[in-house]
């Protein structure tokens, strides 16, 4: 049976494979970018407020910092308590064009030993967890091999 692929949060990313992108919004008046998306009002205090338009974020950035989660996080993070805990890496990535740092999990199999601050990574589609009917999709950061 194929599970339905459902984003863990609506509207934060789009596409599959090579055209996968994080989605933010941009203020039409001041060009401020927001991720997670801001759909209400521009949060720049010096801006009169403009329409917030959906924009894809840069697919590549450089590692600002990284860490991992050696212990099982509590709910609402979903894990199978019957399986041993497998730590995953968390990467904070600086996107140069947007001048923003975005946190995400690393692709499975990447550990902190594989990472350095300044290393280039790219955003790729990933699966956060699966249940009987649904594969809950998310974004992952993956080293490009482009070096630091």
């Amino acid at each position: 049976m194929t599970r339905a692929r459902t984003p863990v949060v609506d509207g934060w990313f789009t596409g599959d494979g090579d055209d996968f992108r994080l989605l933010g919004t941009r203020c039409a008046a001041c060009a401020s970018v927001f991720f997670p998306r801001e759909d209400g009002h521009c949060r720049n205090p010096g801006c009169p407020g403009g329409d917030l338009e959906e924009v894809p974020l840069s697919p590549r950035g450089r590692i600002w910092s990284y860490t991992d989660s050696r212990y099982r996080p509590p709910s609402p993070y979903v894990t199978n308590p019957e399986l041993p805990w497998e730590p995953y890496a968390l990467i904070a990535v600086e996107l140069a064009a947007e001048r923003i740092v975005v946190l995400g999990q690393a692709v499975p199999g990447i550990t902190v030993a594989d990472l350095t601050v300044g290393m280039e990574v790219e955003v790729v589609p990933g699966v956060l967890h699966e249940d009987a009917e649904t594969a809950w999709t998310t974004w992952h950061w993956r080293p490009t091999g482009g070096g630091a």
Binding site: V8, S75, Y77, L90, G104, Q105
Partner: peptide, 16 residues
């Protein structure tokens, strides 16, 4: 959201 989507506990921010 940070727990649901990332499992980002307080210590992971300290680690960053």
């Amino acid at each position: 959201l940070r727990f649901r989507v990332l499992g980002a506990t307080n210590p992971t921010y300290f680690g960053l």
